[in-house]
Amino acid sequence: MTGTDSRDDILARVRAGLAHDPALVDTRRRAALDYLSARAQNSRPRLAGDLTQRFCQRALAMSSTLDRVASLAQVPAAVARYLTANGLPLKGVCWTCHAALDWAAAGLHVEARAAGHDDLVGITGAFCAIAETGTLMLLSGAETAATTSLLPETHIAIVPASRIVAGMEDGFALLRAEHGELPHAVNFVSGPSRTGDIELTLVLGAHGPYRVHLLIVADE
């Protein structure tokens, strides 16, 4: 019989090993809760200079490609430019929050829905972006399907420059401030998927996208 027996047994073994005074259990619990609410930050890099520039430099190092646009309205044209230049199909899917962009005017056929296995291009936004490592922070949700950045061979992400933060800690702080709770999936994405499992030789394109293209939007 597993279940509660195992739970109680494991916790009893843990307590026996640690050998704390049983009378102190409430004090220890309070200390743990205090630690959680303090959310203290540990030693971390202090980034000097412009965060957007730093984000771009690190994103390139993670094999993402980049383009800068002045406003959100210019995104469809930039997407069309990238797809044409790389000989990729001019059709794909985007997050429902970007359904209103004028994709057709740029010659694109873009459907606002979650991606399926046959979709070759997925267009997403980002909750925020992390300058330290050139990383996108994506939240699951009704309008922000996780499959869009995962199933298609090409992932294009719209990144407002105003949403670039220094480190992962700042991303989490933003998440707590704006959403309170975490959604079921918080995904950090840094460039195309890759594997080094055959002869320790790195190749791009494992289970996720082969290409990640970032559009930095100056103001939104």
Binding site: M62, S140, A142, A145, H184, V186, N187, F188
Partner: peptide, 15 residues
């Protein structure tokens, strides 16, 4: 390349 923080279950509206 990927770090995922996962918890809870999908909500009704989640795709």
């Amino acid at each position: 390349n990927y770090v995922s923080v996962l918890g809870g279950t999908r909500e009704r509206a989640d795709p």
